[in-house]
Computed example of a mutant assay.
Amino acid sequence: MTELPHTRTRMVHWLGTAVALAAVVGASSLVQPADATAQPTLTTAAAGTAPDPKQADFPVDCGSASVKVDVVEKGSTDFDGDGRRETVASVRCHSGTGTPPSALFVLGAPARPGQAPRVVATMLRTKEQMSVQDLRVHGRTVSAKLLGYSSPSVPRCCPDRQRKVKWEWKDGKFALEAAPVPGSPESV
Rank of each mutant, 00 (worst) to 15 (best):
A178P: 00
C157Q: 11
C158F: 12
K166V: 10
W169H: 04
P155W: 07
D160P: 01
R156D: 11
K166H: 14
K170R: 15
K173F: 07
C157Y: 11
E177T: 15
V165H: 01
Q162L: 10
P180N: 04
D171N: 14
K164I: 12
Y149C: 01
A179E: 08
V181N: 03
L176K: 04
P180G: 00
C158K: 08
S153V: 15
D160N: 15
W169T: 05
A178N: 03
K164S: 09
S151L: 03
R163L: 10
L176F: 10
S153I: 14
K170H: 10
W167T: 06
P155T: 14
D171Q: 15
G172T: 15
V165C: 02
W167Y: 09
V181P: 00
A179I: 03
R163Y: 05
D160A: 04
K164F: 11
E168H: 11
G172L: 08
S150W: 03
V181D: 06
P152V: 15
F174Y: 04
V154K: 02
A178T: 09
E168D: 10
P152A: 13
R161I: 14
K170L: 12
K166D: 07
R156E: 08
S150P: 02
Y149W: 09
D160W: 05
K166P: 02
W169A: 01
D160Q: 04
K170I: 13
Q162G: 07
D171W: 08
G148S: 12
P182N: 11
D171H: 13
C158I: 13
A175V: 15
K166I: 10
V165W: 02
D171G: 07
F174V: 04
G148D: 07
S151C: 05
G148F: 02
Y149Q: 02
S153M: 13
R163P: 01
V181L: 08
K170F: 08
R163V: 12
G148Q: 01
V154D: 00
C157L: 15
R156C: 06
Q162H: 10
Q162R: 05
K164P: 02
R163N: 03
C157S: 12
P180F: 02
C157F: 13
R161Y: 12
Y149S: 00
V181R: 03
V165M: 05
S151V: 03
S151W: 02
F174T: 02
F174Q: 00
P152I: 13
R161V: 15
A175I: 15
A175E: 14
S153E: 15
K173V: 13
G148N: 01
P159V: 07
G172K: 02
P152E: 13
K166E: 12
P155N: 08
A175S: 10
A179H: 03
S151T: 07
P159Q: 04
R163I: 14
P182F: 11
G148P: 00
A179R: 01
R156T: 14
K164G: 07
P182R: 05
Q162V: 07
F174M: 05
C157D: 13
S150D: 14
V181C: 04
C158Y: 11
V154N: 00
F174H: 00
G172H: 07
L176P: 02
A178K: 00
P159E: 06
S153R: 09
W169L: 03
W167K: 01
P155C: 06
P152K: 06
P152S: 11
C158E: 14
E177L: 09
